[in-house]
Design a protein around this nucleic acid. Structure first.
Length: 296
DNA sequence: CTCTGATCTTTATGTGTTTC
DNA sequence: GAAACACATAAAGATCAGAG
């Protein structure tokens, strides 16, 4: 067993790359080293940690429990070192980097749009890549750096990620201005009208509203299901269809009438989620604070 | 300044697994 | 069972840091 003097930063970076890639060859590519070099580094890591770290399996290398346990501390340490190398005071005006954020269609409109406006004003050098949310992969994406931030609901967050509460959202009923029901809406009228809903996948014609109705022994008529809020707003403006939508989705300029729904529909909570990797990073701390600010 | 040891490179090869 | 792929190992040369 070696001691810490032989464990240099390059070995930690290599271990991190190996944990991410699960392959000596791919880790070597990522580190701009040759495969034999990384193979040799893995041997030194094995020596340092007195553990095989990775064993060969049917498909590539599989980390041992020891290696898995090291993943988080290593990312934290590398993240902290990264943070140490940044200027002590983060300067938004001169900052230049790309930020990857996973957000739903809804969150892109209600959260990312105002964030982008603020960034243009305060930190014009920061580019933003908005990405769709893939619940299966989001944890791994945040861990590897494929994503920097994700805007999620508590149900889809994972153990071990950092989260900050952004806001609680409520549902409202939306229809075009001048709609026959614009004066008021009771439950009977609500159920009699024709609805459009937003649905990315799955049971396309039923959502939280329908569950709340079912609990009362009622149902509504959903005629149209759309995968995009943008299109949905257009449909509302140009038809007598109505929709139950998150309140923040509707802006004053949208030309829509908003009413309280005639029944209680549970809202949802939006969280900003990130990985330990970026916890100490001055730029990321600044961005997270800015995001929370634009949500108020 | 020179020697030594560590680690990188490239190139070549061994070995085990997967795929067709 | 051959071909393709991935990891390990080895040899030879380059580079660099630290010791003396």
């Amino acid at each position: 067993m070696r001691d810490i003097r032989s464990l240099d930063l390059n070995l930690l970076k290599t271990l991190n790359a190996l944990l991410d890639e699960g392959s000596v060859t791919r880790a070597a590519e990522r580190l701009a080293l040759t495969q034999p070099a990384v193979s040799g580094m893995l041997n030194r890591l094995r020596d340092s940690f007195d553990d095989p770290l990775f064993v060969r399996a049917q498909r590539g290398l599989v980390p041992t429990p020891r290696a898995q346990a090291l993943a988080l501390p290593i990312k934290r340490i590398l993240g902290e070192i990264e943070g140490m190398l940044q200027p002590e005071e983060f300067e938004p005006v001169s900052a230049s980097f790309t930020l990857s954020i996973a957000a739903t269609d809804y969150a892109q409109r209600t959260i990312l749009l105002p964030l982008l406006a603020e960034l243009r004003r305060q930190a014009p050098g920061i580019r933003v890549a908005a990405r769709p949310v893939d619940n299966q992969r989001v944890q791994q994406q945040l861990e590897s750096g494929e994503l920097d931030l994700a805007i999620l609901t508590p149900e889809s967050t994972h153990e071990g990620l950092h989260a900050r509460h952004l806001y609680d959202e409520q549902y409202v009923c939306a229809m075009r201005k001048g709609h026959a029901a614009a004066g008021g809406l009771d439950l009977d009228r609500f159920c009699a009208l024709e609805h459009v809903i937003m649905s990315m996948a799955g049971d396309a014609f039923s959502g939280v509203t329908d569950e709340a109705l079912a609990a009362l022994g009622r149902q509504r008529r959903v005629l149209l299901s759309l995968p995009s809020f943008l299109l949905l707003l257009e449909v509302l403006r140009n038809s007598d269809l109505i929709a139950v939508l998150p309140r923040r989705l509707i802006q004053p300029g949208d030309g829509l009438q908003i009413l309280e729904p005639p029944l209680t529909i549970p809202g949802f909570r939006k969280l900003l989620v990130w990985h330990e990797r970026t916890q100490q990073h001055p730029a990321h701390r600044w961005i997270r604070a800015l995001l929370a600010e634009v949500c108020n």
